[in-house]
């Protein structure tokens, strides 16, 4: 994973360095060192602790109904976790909706355990000193797809609709800066400061991005789920921030997972 990222940096760096001289050569040396730094954290990824915690939460009887999540159907049948994350988002008959891993998990916590939606989603991400059950559960569920290929063909009409909606949102320019996702993520070799942004419109680019989430973000000292990643990118695009579990986020995920289909999952990852 680091190798690929490095390669992008080096290739991009080399092309630009020819015209811009040593500042960029310096940049890519720094990027090189930072890749080494992240590699050093990969063994003993702090996200591994959340995975262990999520495993406990999954089987613990909790909520007003004093039930575990072991009967939760993430798309492959009740309690089937292996490979479930890699084939989400997906259309679910019982809710008549395309759901991603987080909306489905919340659905299970509400229906199986008897929590209210508001209760469950109040702490959908962690803050210093305040852990998030959702973060832990998603990290655990994600890791159960490790080594399996992302598989979101989006063949069901509702899924196809979501994927098209996601693609539309990806390219649509709006907001005060007239930004779109594609402005930052639609070309090879684009960078902000030292971050490679990746081309999310190709299988390689989308696969490289999607396969590592949920991911431990070094700069945040926390694990981020894909919902959090995308909601934050909407903020970066200076768009109004959508609500947690909003259809627009699920649509973008469907589009990105469809594009990434075939890429083998490698989560929890380490990101900047």
């Amino acid at each position: 994973m680091m190798f690929q990222r490095l390669l992008v940096t080096l290739v991009g760096g080399a092309v630009l360095a020819a015209s811009a001289g040593s500042a960029l050569a310096q940049d890519s040396k720094v990027a090189d060192e930072l890749a080494k730094y992240r590699d050093a954290l990969a063994d003993g990824n702090p996200a591994d602790l959340l995975e262990v915690k999520g495993e406990g939460l999954w089987s613990e009887k909790r909520g007003p109904k004093n039930a575990s999540l072991e009967q939760c159907d993430l798309g492959l049948g009740p309690g089937k976790l292996e490979g479930a994350y890699a084939q989400l988002p997906k259309y679910f008959k019982d809710t008549n909706k395309v759901m991603d891993v987080e909306s489905r998990l919340v659905h299970c916590m509400v229906t199986l355990q008897g929590f209210t939606q508001a209760d469950v989603t109040k702490q959908w991400y962690s803050k210093p000193g305040k852990e998030s059950d959702i973060e832990a559960l998603v990290t655990f569920i994600g890791a159960k797809s490790n080594g399996m290929p992302i598989n979101v063909p989006a063949t069901h009409p509702e899924e196809a609709k979501m994927a098209r909606m996601g693609e539309y949102i990806f390219y649509r320019r709006s907001g005060p800066q007239d930004f779109s996702c594609s402005i930052c993520h639609g070309q090879e070799g684009k960078r902000i400061r030292l971050q490679d942004l990746g081309n999310l419109t190709t299988k390689e680019g989308a696969g490289f991005a999607m396969k590592t989430w949920p991911s431990y973000r070094v700069s945040q000292g926390a694990v981020w789920t894909m919902q959090r990643r995308l909601i934050d990118c909407m903020r970066q695009a200076r768009w109004p921030e959508p609500n947690y579990l909003a259809d627009s986020i699920v649509a973008l995920e469907t589009y990105l997972q469809k594009t990434a289909t075939g890429t083998v999952m490698d989560t929890p990852g380490i990101e900047r």
Partner: peptide, 8 residues
């Protein structure tokens, strides 16, 4: 009491 450690 804290959460479990991960030991390998």
């Amino acid at each position: 009491m804290g959460n479990p450690m991960k030991i390998r």
